[in-house]
Design a protein around this nucleic acid. Structure first.
Length: 489
RNA sequence: GGCGGCGUAGCCAAGCGGCUAAGGCACUGGUCUGCAAAACCAUGAUUCAGCGGUUCAAAUCCGCUCGCCGCCUCCA
């Protein structure tokens, strides 16, 4: 079953065929390092983490490169504000980035090159473009000549005339064409700079990705990814640089994920309506954020809200509770000629992996894939409800096997990575610490209430229950005694 | 102005020409319970923004209208 991927370049879903069989080469544009990361960055990191995990799950080798932009105008400006160097600032936020990524359980890419460590490669690339008459120096800057590249605009579906009609282009005397973009920028006094054939300066933004992808993945590679806002101008320009210099197709598949929105508006630093990853992780388990992000297919906009996060938490709990229930069965079973699971149930569970793959092969449709997991959970819960004391061996095996499959498949999205009981216990403890009551106190009240119940003193019994409920504790009377949980609000 | 995307039950969200339009949350009913809660089970769209068209067949393709959003400037 082949993987189909929506390719921005062709605007179609295409069957994905790696250039080198079973070895996929992927380049993703990483962060510009000058501030804490927001949920949008989390979506990007998690989307590609999931894509890489899935491709590996299918048995491919994946070489995954994700860069750090550690020099640009914003970094220079912010470093100046903070009275520090661009290097210190960039490295500090790279460290912070790793803290967030580790909490989210994002696997490290194969390599994470930094722009400032590839200045020579960029200078070489720019030199090649000048030699080919595709770029020209002017007063210490070097510009890419968009007219020299016939395919300019093919990725973003624009043409030069249309773009020039929209008058949002800054006037720059040095440019031959207003759409020409900078490859090398002469540095102003006091700014970080590197020596070059055109004088001291620093690289333009787009050129770093062309230089680094070529170095680590070659002239042509399989997948290039990033957020939808990078399509133009960043990726369009990268493509022009790379194909211009190399004379070969740059990338087979372009993958662009959608934005995270808040109240249906794009979250961005310039709008100031963003939430950082750590804001979220202060309040939610990392897997809740993952569950939320994967509840929508990666290309669609994803609207963040507390309600949506609560839904995600409830959904994740349902998955964990099912796994925990299976584990609670232990390994006792009996030979019985009357298993509870029907042929239909069995079939549903045995085809889980197949249906999951079908969903994921459809342009990494994690929303649909989550659905297949819940379908399985529903069937398992139904079986468990009907199970006899020591369950029939075939039922037992079916449940245990399916639980293992669910965990394996959920791992593609980085979900259900914790021990189910530990997850549920930790959650209970965390919720308990958020309210003002001790576990011992609860247990004592339960004792008292149980006595009242034995005495059939329903008044006192209900009084205690209501009192605890006021404090956020819900009681659950069951065959094995009275349990409790912290009420969600 | 140019380019692109979206509009599916109360909310979120799959479905990409043909099986009963996945799944989650909420609601309601049932099982359980002294009554509850929790848990589990069951249940909802004759219909996919609207109007036309193509087709034996459309939520799915085409056209128009309405509404929302993104890119065209740094941006995941």
């Amino acid at each position: 079953m082949p993987v189909k991927i929506y390719n921005t370049l062709t605007r179609k879903k295409e069957t994905f065929q790696p250039i080198e069989p079973a070895h996929i080469k992927l380049y993703v544009c990483g962060i510009t390092s000058y501030d804490y990361c927001h949920i949008g960055h989390a979506r990007s990191a998690l989307a590609f983490d999931m894509i890489v995990r899935y491709l590996r799950y299918l048995g491919n080798k994946v070489t995954y490169i994700r860069n750090f932009t550690d020099i640009d105008d914003k970094i220079i400006a912010r470093a100046a504000e903070q009275n520090t160097t661009t290097e210190e600032l960039a490295n500090r936020f790279i460290d912070e980035f790793y803290i967030d990524m580790d909490k989210l359980g994002v696997d490290r890419p194969t390599m994470e090159p930094k722009a400032t460590e590839h200045i020579q490669e960029m200078i070489d690339l720019i030199t090649e473009l000048i030699d080919k008459d595709m770029a020209y120096p002017a007063h210490g800057d070097v510009y890419y000549s968009v007219n020299s590249f016939a395919g300019y605009g093919k990725l973003s579906g624009r043409n030069l005339e249309d773009m020039q009609a929209g008058a949002r282009i800054s006037v720059n005397e040095n440019k031959h064409n207003p759409m020409d973009f900078v490859l090398w920028k002469a540095s102003k006094p006091g700014e970080p700079s590197w020596e070059s054939p055109w004088g001291p300066g620093r690289p333009g933004w787009h050129v770093e990705c062309s230089a680094m992808s070529r170095k680590y993945l070659g002239d042509t590679f399989d997948i290039h990814g990033g957020g939808q806002d990078l399509i133009f101008p960043h990726h369009e320009n990268e493509l022009a640089q790379s194909e211009g210099a190399n004379g070969k197709p740059f990338v087979k598949m372009w993958i662009h994920h959608g934005f995270v929105t808040i109240r249906d508006e794009k979250m961005s630093k310039s709008l100031g309506n963003f939430l950082t990853i750590r804001d979220i992780l202060d309040h939610y388990h990392p897997e809740v954020l993952r569950f939320f992000i994967f509840s929508t297919q990666y290309r669609n906009p994803l609207d963040f809200s507390e309600a949506a996060m609560q839904d995600a938490m409830t959904g994740l709990d349902r998955l964990y509770e099912c796994i925990a229930a299976v584990e609670k069965l232990g390994d006792k079973s009996q030979d019985s000629d009357e298993p509870v699971a029907t042929t239909k149930d069995r079939n549903k569970l045995e085809t889980l992996e197949e249906r999951f793959q079908k969903a994921m092969n459809n342009d990494f449709n994690t929303a649909q894939a989550q659905g297949t997991l819940f379908e399985a959970v529903k069937v398992m819960n139904k079986i468990m409800r009907q199970l006899s004391a020591p369950p029939a061996k075939t039922d037992h095996t079916l449940l245990v096997t399916t639980a293992a499959t669910i965990k394996k498949l959920a791992a593609v999205m980085g979900l259900l990575q914790e021990d189910a009981n530990a997850y549920l216990a930790a959650k209970k403890a965390a919720m308990l610490s958020a309210i003002d009551i001790k576990e011992e106190e609860i247990e004592n009240l339960i004792q008292e209430r149980n006595q009242a119940r034995v005495d059939k003193d329903w008044g006192r019994s209900d009084e205690i229950r209501d009192q605890l409920l006021d404090q956020g504790i819900e009681l659950k009377d069951g065959p094995e005694g009275t349990g409790w949980s912290v009420k969600r609000n």
